[in-house]
């Protein structure tokens, strides 16, 4: 395999608003709703400084444990920080965690699985044994061990999630590849003399990626929850960063006096979770429709 053969022809299509509108119109309703919800959260994170005057880190002890009001829609916490501001700024952290912790393993996992399924042989055997070994350990155990070795922090958390999370995508992609490899359009591509990397990534991957994309949406939610759990153990995002899970954890001790500290950020997590699963449902619907012929 030559190096130049790996370069994939990527064509950027001219943006055509009319055609784009047609594409959106054909989407299932749950996909549209899910995307709108996710966009809302993303915009809230981006425009947090405009939407709220309060600092998410520095509190005002004068106003500690204030209940929700017009001034503080989600109330304030025990050190007087505006919970609403923390949730808005938290969106930046949590969405970032969701994307990086999901899609870095996704890209590597799918690529490895697709290659293994196509080329077979010792590469496939070796890789699948590695997957088996990784899966044999409970997910959380791997992550905690890695964080224990590398130390807490967001970067190390990404490394830990990657180490445990790529396997599922590898398995999904490989299983699909084993089916697609037999399809006549792949044989036709071989008969045209295309090299392996072109066949794998240009011809096969677009057809096998669907199930991984659908799965990645639930993985996205799980990863946000995981980050929250790790914050709780003190080995994830470090305080006082306004990570949603961390906020919930902070408020736990005050649950009886100030229910809003834990509960309202919890809704942000749920909202994101619902958005992601709606997107996942919608995407799987599109994918199954695409594979049925019109006539």
């Amino acid at each position: 395999m030559s190096v130049k053969s790996v370069a994939l022809p990527i064509r950027i299509r001219r943006f055509n608003p009319g055609a784009w509108r047609n594409v959106v119109a054909g989407w299932p309703l749950n996909l549209k709703i899910g995307l709108t919800m996710l966009m809302t959260i993303a915009l809230a994170g981006i425009f947090a400084p405009v939407l709220t005057p309060y600092d998410p880190i520095i509190g005002d002890f004068q106003n500690a444990l204030d209940p929700p009001s017009w001034e503080h829609p989600f109330g304030t916490d025990n050190v007087g920080r505006d919970v609403f501001s923390r949730v808005l700024y938290g969106a930046r952290i949590d969405l970032q965690i969701g994307f990086i912790a999901t899609y870095v393993p996704f890209i590597y996992g799918v690529a490895l699985g697709a290659i293994a399924g196509y080329v077979g042989g010792w590469f496939d055997t070796l890789l699948m044994r590695l997957v088996d070994i990784t899966i044999a350990f409970p997910f959380l155990v791997i992550i905690i061990v890695i964080l224990a070795i590398l130390g807490p922090g967001i970067q190390n958390m990404y490394i830990a999630v990657f180490a445990a999370g790529w396997t599922i995508y590898t398995r999904l992609a490989r299983a699909e590849m084993l089916v697609i490899r037999q399809q006549e359009y792949i044989l036709a591509a071989q008969a045209l003399g295309y090299n392996r990397m072109r066949i794998i990534f240009r011809h096969a991957v677009p057809n096998l990626i669907g199930s991984s994309i659908v799965f990645s949406m639930s993985d996205f939610v799980l990863n946000i929850l995981l980050a929250s759990a790790l914050s709780y153990f003190g080995i994830g995002v470090q305080p006082p960063a306004p990570e949603w899970g961390a906020i919930v954890t902070d408020g736990r001790d005050w649950l009886l006096q100030a229910w809003w500290i834990s509960t309202l950020p919890g809704f942000a997590i749920i909202f994101t979770g619902v958005a992601a699963s709606l997107i996942g449902d919608g995407l799987s619907k599109i994918i199954s429709q695409r594979n049925t012929p019109v006539l």
Partner: peptide, 19 residues
């Protein structure tokens, strides 16, 4: 490969559905 080509049986699996 350029000199020898093939046409397959199954009109449904012989064309890449994403292209």
């Amino acid at each position: 490969r350029r000199r020898m080509q093939v046409v397959f049986q199954d009109p449904y699996s012989s064309l890449n559905p994403r292209m």
